[in-house]
Computed example of a mutant assay.
Amino acid sequence: SFASLWCQRCIVVGNGYSIHGQHFGKMIDSHHVIIRLNDAPVKEHKKDVGERTSIRLFFPESALPNPLEDSDNDTLMVFVPFKPLDFLWLGEVLLKTRNKTKVGFWRQPPREWNGNVSQLRILNPYVTYEATYKLLQLNASSGRYATTGIIALNLALHMCQEVNIAGFGYPGNHDNTTPIHYYNMGHSRKKELFQHNITAERNWLLKMIELGVIADIASPSFQAQNY
């Protein structure tokens, strides 16, 4: 449960390619609470991203059919609903009645979810609302909302005394060579980013780092102070 997570130092591990080859695994695993995002794999990349997972946030389109393959037995699987259809999907996979419809999802979610139901939690939608409209200050009429990474950071800031990040950030708009994620070489951005405001997120992250609210473990100042 969340109550059992003693959190003095936590880290939100992003899925960005910037973490590839950095060998931050041991540094990440040294945190009390480690929050991961969506369907990002761990085992094959543990030198870079570590291997412990305290919390994994996901939504239907980013769900792993067999999350225990890349999570710990006691990992809290936190479902992040964005739309009413997401609750329908969750009910269907839990009741084993999932149909094959693709309508309403930007990517077909898995037809099965074989996670540990006792470790499943549903994130209060206010955390997403707060991240989108309070932290990023996005306009509701834009139809855009915070990425899972910013939502996870908002959750972490409510839970932990010290919040660090790793693997955040996307390639520039005109960078067609750098992969988006550390775990594949794909460059396509359209489907994954069309509902987000990446510029607003980048500016907010830089502001929080400048104010000392969060820290990027890749920064020279963090390295000098901690290792």
Rank of each mutant, 00 (worst) to 15 (best):
residue 150 I to Q: 01
residue 180 I to H: 01
residue 178 T to Q: 14
residue 89 W to C: 05
residue 67 P to S: 07
residue 116 N to W: 00
residue 183 Y to S: 04
residue 137 Q to R: 13
residue 83 K to Y: 10
residue 46 K to G: 00
residue 37 L to M: 11
residue 16 G to P: 02
residue 126 Y to C: 06
residue 161 Q to G: 09
residue 204 W to T: 07
residue 102 K to F: 07
residue 122 I to V: 13
residue 62 S to Y: 08
residue 17 Y to E: 10
residue 83 K to N: 12
residue 91 G to A: 12
residue 109 P to F: 01
residue 177 T to W: 11
residue 197 N to S: 15
residue 168 F to P: 00
residue 167 G to C: 10
residue 155 L to K: 05
residue 171 P to E: 14
residue 7 C to Y: 05
residue 84 P to L: 09
residue 164 N to V: 00
residue 73 N to Y: 02
residue 142 S to W: 09
residue 84 P to Q: 11
residue 177 T to R: 14
residue 133 Y to L: 07
residue 31 H to K: 11
residue 220 P to A: 11
residue 64 L to P: 00
residue 93 V to Q: 01
residue 130 E to M: 10
residue 206 L to H: 09
residue 104 G to W: 05
residue 107 R to E: 15
residue 174 H to F: 12
residue 52 R to G: 01
residue 101 T to S: 15
residue 102 K to S: 14
residue 59 F to N: 08
residue 153 L to D: 04
residue 144 R to P: 00
residue 32 H to S: 13
residue 205 L to T: 08
residue 64 L to M: 09
residue 12 V to H: 05
residue 47 K to E: 10
residue 63 A to Y: 00
residue 218 A to V: 02
residue 123 L to M: 11
residue 107 R to W: 13
residue 142 S to F: 07
residue 18 S to K: 14
residue 89 W to T: 04
residue 73 N to Q: 07
residue 158 H to E: 11
residue 58 F to N: 00
residue 51 E to W: 07
residue 138 L to V: 05
residue 183 Y to A: 04
residue 54 S to Y: 03
residue 190 K to E: 11
residue 8 Q to I: 12
residue 5 L to P: 01
residue 142 S to M: 14
residue 145 Y to E: 05
residue 192 E to Q: 12
residue 188 S to F: 07
residue 120 L to Q: 09
residue 54 S to I: 06
residue 198 I to F: 01
residue 158 H to F: 09
residue 183 Y to V: 02
residue 107 R to K: 15
residue 40 A to E: 00
residue 82 F to R: 11
residue 53 T to G: 04
residue 64 L to Q: 00
residue 145 Y to V: 06
residue 221 S to K: 11
residue 112 E to M: 05
residue 181 H to A: 04
residue 147 T to C: 10
residue 179 P to C: 14
residue 180 I to M: 08
residue 158 H to Q: 15
residue 47 K to S: 14
residue 206 L to A: 10
residue 153 L to Y: 04
residue 22 Q to H: 06
residue 68 L to G: 01
residue 169 G to T: 04
residue 89 W to V: 06
residue 96 K to N: 12
residue 72 D to E: 13
residue 172 G to Q: 13
residue 213 V to P: 00
residue 118 S to C: 05
residue 185 M to Q: 13
residue 226 N to V: 08
residue 30 S to K: 10
residue 94 L to I: 15
residue 51 E to R: 10
residue 39 D to Y: 03
residue 23 H to C: 00
residue 181 H to F: 07
residue 163 V to I: 12
residue 184 N to E: 10
residue 214 I to C: 04
residue 67 P to Q: 06
residue 213 V to R: 10
residue 55 I to E: 08
residue 121 R to N: 03
residue 19 I to L: 12
residue 174 H to L: 15
residue 41 P to L: 03
residue 223 Q to I: 12
residue 216 D to I: 05
residue 76 L to K: 03
residue 211 L to I: 03
residue 184 N to V: 06
residue 124 N to L: 08
residue 204 W to C: 07
residue 8 Q to Y: 08
residue 89 W to Q: 05
residue 60 P to L: 14
residue 66 N to M: 07
residue 206 L to T: 08
residue 183 Y to T: 03
residue 35 I to Q: 01
residue 2 F to V: 13
residue 227 Y to W: 11
residue 13 V to S: 05
residue 121 R to V: 01
residue 5 L to W: 06
